[in-house]
């Protein structure tokens, strides 16, 4: 077997700046796109219940389109095809302290739009899981739609939304690799750049796999904490265990309370 352990350990524990920058991009793209995707999902989920047929049709078209085409195609379409067709070109944005390159903007747009379609269904299911009596009680107290959605229905829907949301973020961490095709130097592209100079393909892809595994594993801990925190709202949020407490109990295999 041709495996250079020295190279392997070096890249695993002393990653270069290119690699660290890739890690940062992977994480920030995931968090930003998941957040935006969730916001899109909330808006679109409410749209599915609109009394205006045009809004319902628009949401149905959006989810059909985004779930029916490959994410990789969407990414290339939004960044490359739109520019080639002379429709829209993502230009670098200079915020003064930082420049956001066009391809990163396109990556965020594509990942968020794609994620939003999946979140729409998840959030819709969450809203529908809340008993209708809750809406009636809120209405009878004089609350209007947006008020009772925000204060009464969505907080209860969270219980149903959080577990699949956790899975979505796990997928998001890995799906960010796809934006390497439009030149966003996230972890995978960083790995490719290093291998093209060093030819240590076996070692570096083992390292990058371990990095993703670490990210998803750490997220798994956060996810089970989130599920505990929001899992049983009737028990009360204030009485639920903190993150550190949950982690400790997770390893001691004791059920939390």
């Amino acid at each position: 077997m041709n495996f250079d352990w020295t190279e392997f350990w070096k890249y695993l524990f002393q990653p270069t700046n290119v690699y660290l920058h890739g890690l940062w991009l992977t994480l920030s793209l995931s968090v930003v796109s998941q957040s935006l995707g969730t916001l899109i999902g909330v808006a679109a989920a409410l749209g599915t219940q609109s009394r205006f047929r045009a809004i319902r049709a628009l949401v149905a078209f959006y989810t059909w389109l985004m779930r029916g085409t490959p994410l990789l195609v969407q990414i290339v379409f939004i960044y490359t095809a739109l520019a080639a067709g002379g429709i829209f070109r993502f230009e670098d944005i200079d915020l003064g302290f930082v420049v956001i390159p066009g391809n990163i903007q396109a990556a965020i747009v594509a990942l968020s739009l794609n994620e939003g379609a999946y979140m729409t269904e998840i959030i819709r299911a969450g809203i529908l899981s809340v008993e209708h009596g809750q809406t009636e009680a809120a209405k009878s107290l004089g609350m209007t739609y947006f008020k009772y959605m925000r204060r009464i229905i969505l907080p209860q829907a969270v219980r149903v939304i959080v577990p699949p949301l956790g899975n979505e973020f796990n997928a998001m961490l890995k799906n960010t690799t796809l934006v390497s095709v439009i030149g966003v130097p996230e972890l995978l592209l960083a790995t490719q750049m290093i291998t093209s100079a060093t030819f240590r393909v076996f070692e570096l892809y083992t390292v990058v796999a371990l990095y993703y595994l670490t990210l998803t594993t750490l997220w798994g801990f956060v996810q089970s904490w989130l599920e505990r925190r929001f899992g049983e709202p009737s028990r009360g949020i204030a009485q639920n265990p903190g993150l550190i407490d949950s982690l400790r109990k997770m390893f001691t295999r004791e059920p939390v309370r």
Partner: peptide, 10 residues
């Protein structure tokens, strides 16, 4: 006041 109370459980 409803038959099933409909208190906000959260």
């Amino acid at each position: 006041v409803f038959q099933r109370f409909n208190l906000f459980p959260h």
